[in-house]
Design a protein around this nucleic acid. Structure first.
Lengths: 315, 315
DNA sequence: CTTTTCACTTTAGTTTTTCTAATATGAAAG
DNA sequence: CTTTCATATTAGAAAAACTAAAGTGAAAAG
């Protein structure tokens, strides 16, 4: 393989030769006309030959330029063909999605059939993990991640915020000592999740009671769960009143399997984000999924006031 | 035309894919293996896809890599084809040479037939000018220039040095007052060229007489010529003793048309150089001419001692 | 005519990309 | 084991590309 001239310069020449205009080439390549002028000159210098004849306000190819334009164009067309092949290859396999297990089972799976209805050609493979997988090397196309939205080298879009809302089983409201005032909570078992490993500032009953001004109620009572699933199950079973994530609680409330005694929820600094590698962000199937999941999330709205609503009104 | 990935990265991928080795690709492209590694990674990132599977001490193409290698290779082959076309185009027209008129008529033309004999396929066009022509834009392939060898942006090789040697017509030696000792010069007409526009330090009779220790002879006598041709003609005509350039004098001395009464010549700071644009320096026909002209010049040797010889022996 | 406009050119300086050198890694070969 | 070999990784240096702004010169417009 013999030594090639600078490839950028070849590209500038090809575009300029095709348009017979430096300005048009510049527009196509998203650079200034000056850049094209310099690149073409550089190519001419490196070949030791003029490729364009500069006229007053136009250019035309010299014999040498006219001679090599076709093969050079064919070369770039081959590159385009290669890209097209890749795109087809990409569309062939399943769309691989990674998301936290809890979100997958409580939120994603229930509505995935709607996605399949909208995009019957896209097969979906779901990878449940909390690792920040390498989106290129582990062959993951798009993910949902819970965090602060700072994902270096990744494209991320806020999906929905995370709030803790107090919920309990409906029969607990009826059978228990009565749950109308916040002070009534003192006579109920509090169900706690242990989120400390996620974020030291993650809100809990202590904070919720403080926010509603019921610091006299002891927060540290009740049962602690290390798994979100266990906490969820305990709440559904009517073992007490728990603070559940909006994502998990919403469908249950809507279905009547849980009730929300007090319309005050705690917003959490971290939230859910749709995440993908920049290179894949423009893939049609990735955009399709991202847009779909964002549209779906628009249905998830806070039922009551959040902490920030409260503080907003108190100012 | 859709947006292409970085072309250098494509090139690195192509070479690596062809050799199935980053090191071999690095050698081919004259870079370090690290550079290839980075370029391939950059391409993978920009495509959002792995192209190579890294094994212990080898690499292999992934499906995606295997898919796009052929069209990418074809693309680069097209570029090579374009270069080959250009080379053929170049070999078609005449080899255009530029050289000072005096050198052309006295030195180049007489031996050009030998060049034509060696390279019958190369037609030669000679441009006699002293301008430092633009070697790309004026369509000049190679030139001979007289100067100090400092030609920015040009490739130059020393051809032969320039010396002024005292010569006269043979009949002047016989018919005149006698020319055996340097002091005899006092009775001869001195023929001068006017080289002051070339270089203020250009040597002349004054300097020659000083070098040989004959400062008592008045140097400013005789006839001054502004054109080298006129001086040459006057010397040949036997009008006096002149200082002629070795290039002009040598053939005449060899032919017996001139004699060199004293074997002391004056070296000149400036000399002849074969000059070409870097881009054209590797063209076969340009190299052929350059090598030929250098070989021819090897025949041109100083007959007597030069000033530097003298000063060397006196130290 | 004179003025404006249009496309390319030129230059200096900034930004981006590419490369090297040095070091690391990890598995196979000796 | 130890060495060797091919690739990976990093920081920093070197080279290339690009922009912005001013320039040129001829056709088009007035």
């Amino acid at each position: 393989m013999k030594r090639l001239p600078p490839l950028k310069a070849l590209q500038a020449f090809e575009a300029a030769g095709r348009h017979l205009s430096f300005s048009a080439a510049a527009a196509e390549l998203h650079v200034t006309p000056g850049a094209i002028s310099q690149q073409v000159r550089q190519l001419e210098d490196s070949l030791g030959m003029r490729l364009f004849r500069r006229l007053n306000r136009a250019i035309e190819l010299t014999d040498a330029g006219r001679l090599i334009l076709p093969p050079v164009s064919r070369g770039f067309n081959q590159f385009n063909d290669a890209l097209t092949l890749l795109q087809q290859y990409r569309s062939a396999g399943p769309l691989t999605i990674t998301a936290p297990a809890s979100l997958v089972s409580n939120w994603l799976i229930p509505r995935l059939q709607r996605f399949k209805a909208d995009y019957p050609d896209i097969d979906v493979r779901i990878d449940t993990s909390n690792r920040l997988v390498d989106f290129i090397h582990e062959d993951i196309d798009v993910g949902v991640r819970f965090g602060d939205g700072e994902y270096p080298d990744l494209d991320s879009t806020h999906l929905f915020s995370y709030e803790l809302i107090p919920v309990c089983a409906p029969q607990l409201m009826r059978q228990g000592p009565g749950l109308r005032e916040i002070s009534d909570l003192a006579r109920y078992t509090l169900l706690h999740g242990d989120y400390r490993d996620l974020d030291a500032a993650f809100p809990d009953w202590t904070m919720w009671l403080k926010v509603v001004g019921a610091e006299d109620i002891e927060a540290e009572r009740g049962i602690f769960f290390s798994q979100a699933d266990q906490l969820f199950q305990a709440v559904v079973d009517g073992q007490g009143v728990g603070l559940l994530a909006n994502v998990m609680a919403e469908p249950e409330i809507a279905a009547g399997r849980l009730v929300q005694p007090f319309a005050i929820s705690l917003p959490v600094r971290m939230s859910y984000h749709v995440v993908t590698s920049p290179a894949k962000a423009s893939w049609p199937r990735v955009r399709a999924f991202r847009d779909w999941v964002l549209a779906e999330s628009a249905g998830l709205r806070t039922r009551g006031r959040t902490l920030s609503d409260e503080s907003g009104r108190r100012d």
